[in-house]
Design a protein around this nucleic acid. Sequence first.
DNA 1: TAAGACATGATATATCGTATCATTAACTTT
DNA 2: AAAGTTAATGATACGATATATCATGTCTTA
Lengths: 153, 153
Amino acid sequence: MSKISKALDHAEKHCKVSGTRLTEKRKHVLTGLLKSQKALSAYELADFYRNEFNESVPPMSVYRILAFLESENLVHKLHLANKYVACSHISCDHAHEVPQFLICDECSAVKEIGIKKTLIDTLKRNVAQAGYLLKSPQLELHCLCQDCAKQPA
Amino acid sequence: MSKISKALDHAEKHCKVSGTRLTEKRKHVLTGLLKSQKALSAYELADFYRNEFNESVPPMSVYRILAFLESENLVHKLHLANKYVACSHISCDHAHEVPQFLICDECSAVKEIGIKKTLIDTLKRNVAQAGYLLKSPQLELHCLCQDCAKQPA
DNA sequence: TAAGACATGATATATCGTATCATTAACTTT
DNA sequence: AAAGTTAATGATACGATATATCATGTCTTA
């Protein structure tokens, strides 16, 4: 069973449990993110969809579908890049730490990593000292991936 | 001497040293950011400019001016909010740690804080372990400011 | 003062995203 | 199975952010 079909399988079970529907279109959009292995914008996903499934989808639908997938924690939105990635832990069963994203500024490759809780706690404390409240400790970091670091633009 | 004119004064000296020109328009845009005390988009700045100085400026010029001010480290771009803030350390003489931004999701208030170098080093190590290279350790964190935390929407 | 560099104006267009209303598909209940 | 309800999608319009490009203006310096 491929990684992708395994993830789709898990997504389906997840939706069944949560009483939501993983429709064909939603599955297709998720497939696009899983296949592409990088962050895609809603419009890029619409293009991918058209090419992959020979069927056009309006970008608005893609936005709605992404919002749904995000609410089910199957997809993460990268606010820094205005793009979306499939959650790299779809198929895991265990609970996860807050996701942290490394975004390659060159090729949009994205790596999702975990970060020691102590580091996040330190961060929270720093923020609290400034009188602010940390809403989301989901960090998004400007990076270069291994390949792009080797052969800079 | 007000905080703002002090900052402007410093900016002028800074540009003289770096051999660049702090034109009237550039000074006006910087003034806008200093006065507003929060993050503004390029278009919001164009509006502010028009009201404050009774003179219209095309948004394109604002973008160019912001790019200039950023290259001189007088202004920071917040990629999360697509807005811009004046560097809160314009008037300081000492070298600074990498700036970290706390962005209030409600009212766009922005606080610029420093973060212990050890924390950033830990972060860098985490990133390196994932095979990535941290390009910019400038974090932008989704927060609530003190006021908005008290009276949530 | 003429030449070149730098700064700005003006226009068009790309990209990301939201709002709104109409339509279709899917579940539910009897 | 038919009617009614809810959920999902299509379609259109629009707003905001941002870039590309070419023309024009303004300093600077020899």
